[in-house]
Design a protein around this nucleic acid. Sequence first.
DNA 1: TCTTGACTTGGATTGCGTCCATCGTAGGAT
DNA 2: ATCCTACGATGGACGCAATCCAAGTCAAGA
Lengths: 126, 126
Amino acid sequence: MTSQRRVVAEVLDGEHVHLTADEVHARAVERLPEISRATVYNALGELVALGEVVELSTDGRAKRYDPNARHPHHHLVCSRCGTIRDVPPAGDPMAGLPEEERFGFTVSKVEVTYRGLCPSCAGRAA
Amino acid sequence: MTSQRRVVAEVLDGEHVHLTADEVHARAVERLPEISRATVYNALGELVALGEVVELSTDGRAKRYDPNARHPHHHLVCSRCGTIRDVPPAGDPMAGLPEEERFGFTVSKVEVTYRGLCPSCAGRAA
DNA sequence: TCTTGACTTGGATTGCGTCCATCGTAGGAT
DNA sequence: ATCCTACGATGGACGCAATCCAAGTCAAGA
Ligand SMILES: [Mn+2]
Ligand SMILES: [Mn+2]
Ligand SMILES: [Zn+2]
Ligand SMILES: [Zn+2]
């Protein structure tokens, strides 16, 4: 556990949002000015492997890192600006996939993504 | 409607799979050798705008294009090799998101993605 | 003190997608 | 039939996110 990794973990712990790697880097730099982007990517990858952070690829843009990994939840994503909100899960989402429909896959998780426009994006002209 | 756009549409119609833009281009080149990648991207974008094809960003890699847009369905994705299988929807997935939980968003669609390992990837060493 | 190995760094590189200047061509006007 | 015009195609340049890599730094142990 180096100071760099600690800072990355702290940035995510403090913020209950869905940051991109570059946003995490920007916040990390405030505490440790010389930390590199490569190190942020390494630290994030390790946190994801440990299951402490969830990696989200909601669109074709930058992945987002979600520190709220202990409480399973879904996401509401704005198709225009990319804003993400957490949504509490309703029922067991795995229930929709009976054994016969799994094609032999070993299913480990389910992601439910609701897409639409956030209030401020819906307000503007289409 | 140019010959290029027709070829892209035909490639997707014929294949009931989930191709990347480059895979669509490779198949299109077999029928129209000089078609460019830019044109394939343009044609795919138009088909997506028309609602005839669904664009999927299941991981951080290339987007995949799904011609099965008329029948809403979910996806089973192999975390290792990226293989995608269609899964029939069970019930109305929008039911899990009551009005009070929408944060003012205008929700237009829901994606359910089951992640795991396909049979051949599960067979190999971890 | 010296050695070793793990970690960091910054720049190069890759993958995917978009942008843009230019070109070709189908269709309408003359 | 010839000319104009506008739309779409082309291919290469470009941009962004992420990874790779060679070199540098550092701490712990012999
Ligand atoms: Mn979240
Ligand atoms: Mn599908
Ligand atoms: Zn928005
Ligand atoms: Zn697989």
